[in-house]
Amino acid sequence: MRWNRQFVHLAEAVLLGREGAGADAAAAVERALAAAEPYPLAQHLGLRLVADAAHQDGWGDPVSWLRRAEHHFHERDIAAVTGACRAGLRRLGAPVHQHRSGTSGIPQQLRTQGVTVREFDVFRLLAERLSNKDIADRLFISPRTAEKHIASLITKTGAANRADLCARSAALRSG
Rank of each mutant, 00 (worst) to 15 (best):
R18K: 15
E19G: 05
A21R: 15
A21C: 08
A23N: 10
A25E: 01
A26S: 15
A27Y: 04
A27T: 08
A27S: 12
A27H: 08
A28C: 04
A28T: 06
V29N: 00
V29Y: 04
E30F: 06
R31N: 04
L33Q: 12
A34K: 14
A35D: 14
A36D: 06
E37H: 10
P38V: 15
P38L: 07
Y39K: 05
Y39S: 09
P40C: 11
Q43F: 05
Q43L: 14
H44C: 11
L47M: 15
R48M: 15
R48S: 13
L49S: 15
V50E: 00
A51W: 02
A51I: 04
D52L: 13
H55D: 02
Q56W: 07
Q56P: 00
W59S: 01
P62V: 03
V63Y: 00
S64W: 11
W65M: 02
W65E: 00
L66P: 03
R67K: 13
A69L: 13
E70C: 12
H71M: 08
H71Y: 09
F73W: 10
E75G: 05
A80N: 10
A80H: 13
A80Y: 11
V81H: 12
V81E: 15
T82G: 04
G83M: 09
A84R: 08
A87G: 06
A87Y: 14
G88N: 09
G88Q: 06
L89S: 07
R90F: 06
R90M: 09
A94W: 04
A94T: 04
P95V: 14
V96L: 07
V96D: 03
V96Q: 07
H97S: 14
H97T: 15
H97R: 14
H99G: 00
R100V: 15
R100W: 06
G105K: 10
I106F: 01
Q108L: 12
Q109A: 11
T112S: 10
Q113G: 04
Q113R: 14
G114S: 11
V115T: 01
T116A: 02
R118L: 14
E119R: 08
F120E: 02
D121R: 12
R124C: 12
L125I: 10
L125D: 04
L126I: 12
A127F: 09
R129C: 03
R129H: 06
R129M: 04
N132T: 15
K133M: 13
S142D: 08
P143G: 06
P143D: 02
A146C: 01
A146V: 00
A146F: 01
E147K: 07
E147A: 10
E147I: 02
E147D: 14
H149P: 00
I150F: 04
I150H: 01
A151R: 13
S152H: 03
S152A: 13
I154D: 00
T155C: 07
A159H: 08
N161G: 07
